[in-house]
Simulated assay, not measured.
Amino acid sequence: MPAVPQPPISAPQNFDEYCAQKAAPAGSSAYYALRQAPASRQPFLTALFALRRELEETVKNTSDPTVGRTKLAWWQKETAALAAGQPSHPVSHALARHSADIESEAPMLRTLVAGFEMDLDQARYLDFPNLARYIERVGGAFAGAVARATARQAQHADAWAAPLGNALMLAQFVQELGNDARHGRIYLPIDELQRFGVTAAEIVNRKYSPAFSELMRFQTNRAREALHTALAGIPAAERPTQRTLKAQAAMALALLDEIERDQYQVLHQRIALTPIRKLWIAWRAARKR
């Protein structure tokens, strides 16, 4: 199979701009969350978010699993090259430029790519423990890297940041259920669908029902409780350092409330907060002790 072309490499001064456009366009939740971080760390965090978006788009925008695996294999090589100080992609260049020790993040980089590789191997999960393996790779591991970027004691960040990253993934599954189904993936465990009497076909065909509402109430409550628990688990000394993660969590909680008020109508539309509301929520959450 011929090599899968990658995006052209921009001039060095455009690496940061590329990452900002990829990860945090104006008005997006990521835009407001990243703006809460210290100015000196925003470029690195934006590059991290851009990497995650690159991997996510690789999976979602590729209909042929073989092509998807080829692209992710390229990313595995690229993240190894990045850790070795030989980046070639704009996002990798930005990460290398803004990290004092990108080699130390090599395990996270491998875990993140491996997490998205799971999307090419399965589109459904039998139960929550199986889904948790995916969540921990694409959510928890990533949040650990975000936390380390600004933490006072980076070596301990994974213990309290990973649960928050996992909780953010649960909230994302609620918001993106309809969109994910259109891409052939349902991140709600099969045994939970069966428990509430909802079929995958009903989700794909955007069929609402009392049973679906009960299923989504359960999913929403679980995500909300996980977010509150994870936020409470951030050590007091680290709360001032974690403005980006706290802003993300606050916007996720507000969005879950909005989805609940809209009676879980997430199959045919993507419910979102307005930019001005995101700005206010992110600003307030970032400064909350």
Rank of each mutant, 00 (worst) to 15 (best):
P25A: 08
S28R: 01
L34G: 02
C19G: 13
A11D: 14
P5K: 02
Y31I: 03
S28W: 06
C19P: 10
A26L: 09
P38R: 00
R35V: 03
L34D: 10
Y31L: 03
Q36F: 12
R35C: 11
N14E: 14
L34N: 02
I9M: 06
P12T: 03
P8L: 11
P25C: 08
R35A: 14
Y18I: 03
P7C: 14
L34E: 01
Y18P: 03
S29P: 09
C19Y: 04
R35M: 15
Q13C: 05
A33G: 04
A26M: 05
E17P: 00
S10L: 15
S28H: 04
Q36P: 05
L34T: 01
R35Y: 14
P38G: 04
A23T: 06
F15D: 09
A37L: 15
Y18D: 05
Q36K: 09
D16N: 11
R35E: 10
P38N: 08
S10Q: 13
I9F: 08
P12W: 10
P12V: 08
P8D: 13
G27D: 03
F15C: 07
A39C: 08
R35W: 15
Q6E: 07
A11P: 07
Y31D: 10
C19V: 05
L34V: 00
M1I: 09
L34Q: 03
S28L: 09
I9C: 14
Q21P: 00
F15M: 09
A20M: 09
S10H: 15
G27M: 06
Y31N: 08
A30Y: 03
A37T: 14
V4G: 06
S28Y: 02
F15S: 06
P7A: 14
K22A: 12
Y32T: 03
F15N: 03
A23R: 02
M1G: 12
N14A: 11
S28Q: 04
S29L: 05
A37Q: 11
Q36I: 06
A30F: 01
A37V: 11
Y18C: 06
L34M: 11
Q36E: 13
F15W: 14
